[in-house]
Measured scan of single mutants.
Amino acid sequence: LRLEVKLGQGCFGEVWMGTWNGTTRVAIKTLKPGTMSPEAFLQEAQVMKKLRHEKLVQLYAVVSEEPIYIVTEYMSKGSLLDFLKGETGKYLRLPQLVDMAAQIASGMAYVERMNYVHRDLRAANILVGENLVCKVADFGLARLIEDNEYTARQGAKFPIKWTAPEAALYGRFTIKSDVWSFGILLTELTTKGRVPYPGMVNREVLDQVERGYRMPCPPECPESLHDLMCQCWRKEPEERPTFEYLQAFL
């Protein structure tokens, strides 16, 4: 395994491009020591290896001592969030954005069929390849993070704006909380990567959403798509659509 080009840095580690087995181009995620327990990670990795779908980033291998390494397929255009905010983002029109959403829903419909939960679905965790191919990455890892700023769910590192209220408040993460996050991801797509709930801080978002506030229809977004977002944001988790439905609708 060779680490060649550093692609990015996040709160919990770095991402590199490299070569595996001398020939395969891969992405390598390294986790800061202390982010998660190697034992817990190894268990999760076994499950992650079983998830194989064309719209999920394929896991190739893991190094399960500290520092933990995760070796996955390489996606040339990086994260969907950076892609939307970058040069190419300007030229993306609604049909392409909807197609990308459908690809993500397709990957998540598979996660749904496998009775698995992602827990951290957002544009930053979707990767883009050639020809606007989108794949879901980092599934299941969020559960293992041991950082206090994260586990408190009120901490600075927790993605509260993407998280369903029952998950943020009571830790009830299910495929239905993933559906909520998918609704937020749809706003990221239609606004080219704007942060959700602009002008609001995490605490406010939690309070307002509890009181029934939902983001309005983004500019140039059809009402039918906003309606779909609002279905994803129904207060009762069981009233939210399935990913199978979302995939078919898109």
Rank of each mutant, 00 (worst) to 15 (best):
L1G: 04
R2K: 10
E4N: 14
E4L: 15
V5C: 15
K6I: 15
L7Y: 09
Q9P: 02
Q9A: 11
G10S: 00
G10R: 01
F12T: 01
V15R: 02
V15Q: 03
G18Q: 05
G18L: 00
T19A: 12
T19M: 12
W20S: 10
N21A: 12
G22N: 10
G22D: 11
T24Y: 11
R25N: 13
A27V: 03
I28Y: 10
L31N: 14
L31G: 08
K32P: 01
P33D: 15
P33M: 08
T35D: 07
M36T: 03
S37N: 03
E39L: 11
E39F: 12
A40S: 11
L42A: 04
Q43G: 13
Q43E: 09
Q43F: 14
A45L: 02
A45C: 05
K49Q: 06
K49P: 02
K49R: 03
L51D: 00
L51R: 00
R52P: 07
E54S: 11
E54A: 12
L56S: 12
V57K: 13
V57H: 08
Q58R: 13
Q58H: 13
Q58M: 10
Q58G: 09
Y60R: 15
A61E: 02
A61V: 04
A61G: 06
V63K: 06
S64V: 04
S64L: 03
S64N: 05
S64D: 05
E65P: 13
E65R: 12
E65G: 07
E65L: 14
I68K: 05
V71E: 02
T72I: 15
E73L: 05
K77G: 08
S79Y: 01
L80K: 00
L81I: 12
L84T: 07
G86S: 11
G86N: 08
E87S: 12
E87D: 09
T88E: 10
T88F: 12
L94N: 07
L94K: 07
P95T: 08
P95S: 08
P95D: 05
V98N: 12
Q103I: 04
A105Y: 01
S106M: 11
M108P: 02
E112L: 15
E112T: 15
R113M: 11
R113Y: 14
V117S: 03
R119P: 02
R119H: 01
D120V: 01
D120M: 00
D120N: 02
R122Q: 00
R122Y: 02
A123G: 10
A124Q: 06
A124F: 01
N125S: 00
I126V: 07
I126L: 04
G129T: 11
G129Y: 06
G129N: 15
G129S: 13
L132E: 11
V133P: 05
C134V: 09
K135Q: 13
A137I: 00
A137R: 00
F139R: 03
G140S: 01
G140H: 02
G140I: 00
E146L: 08
E146C: 09
E146Q: 08
E149P: 05
Y150L: 02
T151K: 05
A152E: 03
G155D: 08
A156L: 05
A156R: 03
A156S: 15
F158I: 06
F158P: 02
I160L: 08
K161F: 01
T163W: 00
P165Y: 10
P165H: 08
A168L: 05
G171L: 14
T174D: 06
T174A: 11
T174G: 10
I175G: 15
W180C: 03
W180Y: 09
W180D: 01
W180R: 03
S181D: 01
T187I: 10
E188P: 00
T190A: 11
V195N: 13
V195H: 14
Y197G: 00
P198F: 08
G199A: 13
V201R: 08
N202A: 05
N202G: 05
R203C: 11
R203M: 13
E204G: 05
Q208T: 11
Q208H: 10
E210M: 06
E210V: 08
R211D: 09
R211G: 08
G212K: 05
G212V: 02
Y213I: 06
Y213D: 04
Y213Q: 05
Y213S: 05
Y213N: 05
Y213K: 05
R214Y: 09
R214W: 05
R214V: 11
R214A: 05
M215Q: 09
M215C: 07
M215R: 01
P216I: 08
C217Q: 13
E220I: 08
E220R: 11
E220C: 10
E220L: 07
C221V: 08
L225P: 03
H226Q: 10
H226W: 10
Q231W: 14
Q231I: 12
C232W: 02
C232V: 10
R234A: 11
E236W: 15
E236K: 11
E238C: 14
E239A: 12
R240Q: 00
P241E: 09
P241C: 07
T242I: 14
T242F: 14
E244C: 10
E244K: 11
Y245T: 12
Y245S: 13
L246W: 05
L246I: 09
L246S: 06
L246E: 04
L250Q: 06
